[in-house]
């Protein structure tokens, strides 16, 4: 009985393997020399967050609109898969390979060294010595600009004169957002204080909520969450306690329908598409690092669809946004304090 069960399981496993191998073959397409073949390798699962969903949706649409482009989105979810999958893409004959985040930088560098003809791009690579690699282009989102606007909105909306910040981790990317936020508050210059906390997780709404409650108990009436899923907990705390929430990346109106002021939105899809567009139109800049911000349509501030922010404040905030897009405001990437 036990043996039979084992046998059946083994056969099922073999069948699954066979099936996946067959389906893998199916996606290989015939080589047209005109066609640009692009691989997008994500280190996070595509359905794990909204920005990645938007990104894949955007890429798919771009692929449909442009006949000479073929885009394949691939997940590499563990460190040991990064280099293997990137190399597999090289072998498959992709002309442009886009990897994601500094996590994948080492794998990208290793693969790029062996395939000098392939153009590599890394999204949010944060690579320091990018100039050493002629076939890697780093492109990243400027988060300080929208965070600056969020800071302005928070300073204009607060009634207690004290606003809070909950970051997912005390790291480079989050601190850039913090830097923008603090300078935005300073720009309004109405004596608003800010309190900085880090909840050390991007997926824990329970702990995020506790951090927000702590800030609210300390007198903050605007909470800015830059902590992914933990931020959902902050939004919920703000909604329950009747204070305001300032969102990041996407809208949090599912958790804070009446409390969200607005969100420092990111449009990663526009950035990746802009990069692909540049590259296939012979405007590839390997060995450089490029920043995309409000002016390039990769970021923007959006007010939530509720009546929280009065029209005059909205106008004031959007005026700041226009100034930033026009390059009239200089924003540093170092936080004023932690």
């Amino acid at each position: 009985m036990k043996r039979k069960l084992k046998k059946t399981l083994a056969m099922m496993l073999a069948f699954v393997l066979l099936a996946s191998a067959v389906s893998g073959c199916g996606s290989k397409s015939g080589g047209e020399s005109e066609k640009h073949r692009i691989a997008f390798v994500s280190y996070q699962a595509f359905d794990s967050s909204e920005w990645l969903q938007n990104l894949t949706k955007g890429l798919k649409q771009y692929e449909e609109e442009n006949e000479n482009v073929e885009i394949k989105c691939i997940e590499a979810l563990a460190v040991d898969q990064y280099e293997t999958k990137v190399r597999a893409c090289c072998e498959e004959g992709f002309d442009i390979i886009i990897t994601t985040y500094s996590d994948m930088a080492d794998a990208t560098i290793a693969a790029a060294a062996d395939y000098p003809d392939i153009k590599f791009g890394i999204l949010q690579g944060e690579m320091e010595n990018i100039a050493d690699y002629s076939n890697i282009a780093d492109f990243h989102l400027n988060r300080t600009e929208t965070a600056f606007i969020q800071g302005c909105a928070a300073a204009l909306m607060t009634k207690t004169g004290k606003v809070g910040f909950v970051g997912g981790s005390d790291s480079g990317g989050i601190n850039e957002i913090l830097a923008g936020y603090q300078q935005g508050i300073a720009y309004i210059d109405n004596g608003t204080e800010d309190v900085v906390t880090y909840c050390n997780s991007f997926t824990d709404p329970t702990i995020g909520k506790e951090y927000a409650l702590q800030l609210i108990a300390g007198g903050c009436d605007v909470i800015f969450g830059a902590a992914g899923g933990s931020g959902t907990g902050c939004a919920q705390a703000a909604e329950e306690q009747g204070v305001m929430y300032a969102a990041c990346d996407v809208h949090y109106t599912d958790a804070a329908p009446n409390a969200e002021i607005g969100s420092a939105m990111n449009y990663f899809e526009n950035m990746v598409i802009a990069f692909i567009d540049d590259t296939i139109h012979d405007n590839y800049q390997g060995g450089t690092s490029r920043e995309y911000g409000i002016a390039q349509g990769a970021a923007g501030y959006e007010f939530a669809d509720n009546d929280l922010a009065p029209q005059d404040i909205q106008d004031q905030v959007m005026a700041v946004s226009e100034k930033i897009a026009a390059g009239e405001i200089e924003i540093a990437s170092e936080p004023l304090h932690k």
Binding site: S48, S49, S201, T203, D204, P205, T206, I207, K209, G229, T232, G233, Q236, A255
Partner: peptide, 15 residues
């Protein structure tokens, strides 16, 4: 208890 006390599910929320 973890999920319903914040009445939401978030990917990897057990953390």
């Amino acid at each position: 208890e973890l999920a319903l006390s914040v009445y939401m599910f978030n990917v990897g929320m057990t953390n």
